[in-house]
């Protein structure tokens, strides 16, 4: 064990899952989401990724990408929910 709690391996915070103490879970409604990326900008973890997944909305809009939440790291702070203009993120109580 290194003295003074020095972490010798850089970037190992990814090994630390911060998503296990969430009480509310943000869920993106892909149909309502306008891909504005405000949530991606504001998420402090960051637990929001822009992924290569095509999506065609009910109104026929074809998106090349989707915005998704990585629940291993999302701590349920609700900032994304607050920041999402079209109210595309539901905040649902975790039931475990």
């Amino acid at each position: 064990m290194p003295a003074g709690a020095v972490i010798m391996e850089p970037g190992n915070s990814a090994e630390r899952f911060t998503g296990d103490w969430r009480t509310f879970k943000p869920v993106i409604n892909q149909d309502k989401c306008t891909r504005c990326l405000r949530c991606w900008v504001f998420c402090p973890e960051p637990a929001i990724s822009i992924v290569d997944r095509q999506y065609t909305s009910s109104s026929g809009r074809a998106w090349k990408n989707s915005v998704e939440i990585n629940y291993d790291y999302c701590k349920g702070c609700g900032i994304c929910v607050e920041e999402c203009e079209p109210k595309a993120i539901d905040f649902i109580e975790e039931v475990k």
Partner: peptide, 20 residues
């Protein structure tokens, strides 16, 4: 040769660090 100093230690490591 990057390292992290002064990071957080949760209850599973704080005690050992102090004992050092």
């Amino acid at each position: 040769k990057p390292v992290t100093m002064g990071a957080v230690a949760n209850p599973d490591w704080y005690y050992e660090t102090k004992y050092q």
